[in-house]
Every structure is written in C-alpha cells, then in structure tokens.
C-alpha cells in the first residue's frame, strides 16, 4: 500500500512539474531576448560592468588609493577620462574599484533577503492561521517605515561598514519578498494538483519544495531584478549621508558624499559616480521590465 501511494505521488508530481512554468523558463527567456532589445543590451552592460570591476587593476594604469598631488581637481581629459579628485586620484579608476562594493551591495543583501522572505512568506501562506498573522503583521511593520530612515537607525546602532550594510538591507528588504511569496503560495495552494498531492498524503515540505517554490520562481526572479537597484540606491543614500561605507573602503555613494564639497568647482567628482549609479539602476529596470513581460504576465500592472 505504501509503495502504491508513493508511486502515485511521484507520477502526480511529475505531471505537475511538466505543466508548471519552471519548464518553460528557457523558452520564455529566449522570447524576451528576441522581443526586447533594451533588456538584452542592459544585461550585456551589467555583465560588462561586473567584469570591469573585477578586472579593474588590468584596465587602469592608476592607483585607487594614492593619487598624484600635482594632478589635483583636473577636469576630464584624455589622460583622465573622468577627471581627478581632490587628492589627484583618477575618478574613473575609483569608479571601477568602487563598483565592487556598490554591485556587491546590490546583489548580496538582496539574495539574503530573498531567502529570508521566501522562507517566511511561504510558511505564512502555507500554514495560515496565527503563523500567517504574526509573520505578516511583522512584515506590515517593516513596510510601514520609510526604508531609508529605518536603515539609518540600524546603521547607527551597528556602525558603518560594508558588512553592516549587508545586514541592514537584508533586515529591511525581506518584508516585500515575504508578501509576494505569501500571495503566490496562497494562490498555488488552491490549485488542483497541489490539493491532489495533499490528498494522497505528500508531506508539506515536499509539496513546498517540488511544487510551490518552482512555481514562485518567475515572480521571484522579477522581484530580484527590482530589489537589486533599490538596494544599490539605499547603499548610496546611506553612504551619501555618511552612515554607510567608511574610508578607506569606497563605494559610489561615498564618492558622491566626499565629492559634494567640490560640486561647484569640480562637479565631475560627485556627478560621475551618481551617473554610474543611475546607469546601473536604469539597466536593472530595463532588464526587470523585460523579464516581467516575459515571465509573469499577471504582474504587468507595475
């Protein structure tokens, strides 16, 4: 009897996963690549930027930390494409090195917050009852804060620094992920193949792992591309206010912060990293829009 049951379960699971969207992910991505040129261009740009940040020492002849005192506050020229800063350091070089932290802050806390948010959101959606109530009220509270102010308070207690930014942003961003994961889980829970799996006694963990998570994936990928730019903007805002990345580390936000006092005589020092942030966020948004159109038609309403 037990054998019969588990065989039946695995057949139903196989069928379900064939119908499920995860199988067509590759097809959907290829369709997006054909239809949406901006999304592809953005993906290429972002990959090139990551490579440039990694290969910074090969790409630039200048040093990011020590500058040439004779070359202070030089306007953009052939030798210094984006000019030099108050210490005679090449702005483009600092931009490439700063990209390492700015991009890492975009990706790492977003991944951590996705893991936390998915665990809590799926648990809330699947379990319902008081578990759902407690988790979602907590999410409501986190989402009620203006995120920058909450991040400032957390950074105040933890102190500045890259690791603490990771922590602060992970603590803040999980709530929006949990909401999406919960609503996806609730709508999937009502679907017939999951009720079928439940009725033949498949364990909840297995249902979640095999049926619910793969079907949440498109929505989560879209959310990821939207949360990466918001994490980058949060980091740059925190560093801009002086409670984020601290010297001798450097990020784009910190470059803007330190360069702002020279805005009127050397605007390139603060405007170059600002523009870099804008381009990355723009790229992520183009990519996110493309992915949303391709993967998740019912999220089309922004």
């Amino acid at each position: 009897m037990a054998l019969f049951k588990s065989k039946k379960a695995s057949i139903s699971e196989e069928l379900a996963s064939q119908i499920g969207e995860s199988q067509t992910l590759g097809v959907q991505l290829r369709r997006m690549a054909r239809k949406n040129k901006m999304a592809v261009a953005s993906a290429v740009f972002l990959v090139l930027l990551v490579l440039a940040a990694i290969c910074a020492p090969i790409l630039t002849p200048y040093d990011a930390i020590t500058g040439d005192p004779m070359q202070r506050l030089q306007a953009p020229s052939a030798a210094h494409l984006l000019g030099t800063d108050e210490n005679g350091r090449d702005v483009l070089t600092r931009l490439l090195y700063g990209a390492r932290i700015s991009l890492a802050v975009g990706v790492i806390p977003t991944l951590v917050s996705m893991v936390i948010g998915v665990i809590l959101g799926v648990a809330a959606g699947y379990a319902g009852g008081w578990v759902d109530y407690v988790i979602m009220r907590l999410a409501d509270v986190m989402l009620a804060f203006p995120s920058l102010l909450l991040a400032m308070v957390i950074m105040y207690t933890l102190g500045g620094g890259v690791i603490n930014i990771f922590l602060a942003l992970s603590l803040i961003e999980w709530a929006s992920v949990a909401r999406v994961a919960r609503s996806e889980t609730i709508s999937l829970k009502e679907s017939e193949y999951i009720q079928a799996a439940q009725s033949i006694g498949v364990r909840p963990m297995r249902i979640i792992w095999r049926h619910i998570l793969p079907n949440c994936l498109p929505a989560l990928i879209v959310l990821f591309t939207l949360n990466v730019p918001s994490a980058i903007l949060s980091e740059s805002s925190l560093s801009f206010l002086g409670v984020g990345v601290q010297l001798p580390n450097s990020s784009w936000g910190l470059m803007v912060n330190l360069g702002r006092q020279f805005l009127y005589n050397a605007p390139w020092i603060s405007l170059a990293p600002s523009a870099a942030i804008m381009l990355v966020v723009l790229g992520c948004n183009f990519l996110g829009d493309g992915l949303r159109d391709a993967l998740d038609p019912h999220l089309n309403n922004d």
Binding site: P229, L233, S236, S237, F240, V256, R260, L263, Y264, P267, S270, L271, S274, A275, I277, M278, V281, L282, N285, F286
Partner: peptide, 22 residues
C-alpha cells in the same frame, strides 16, 4: 518616467542645484 525611477535623488538634486541655482 524610467529615468525618473532610476536616477538617485541626490543626483537630480545636485544637478539642479549646480545648473539652475549656481
């Protein structure tokens, strides 16, 4: 609109301050 949602607030603020005010 897309530029608006992508540009950091401090960049718009500094550019406006630099160009229109300064």
């Amino acid at each position: 609109s897309l530029l608006g949602v992508s540009v950091p607030v401090f960049m718009t603020a500094m550019v406006l301050q630099f160009a229109l005010a300064f």
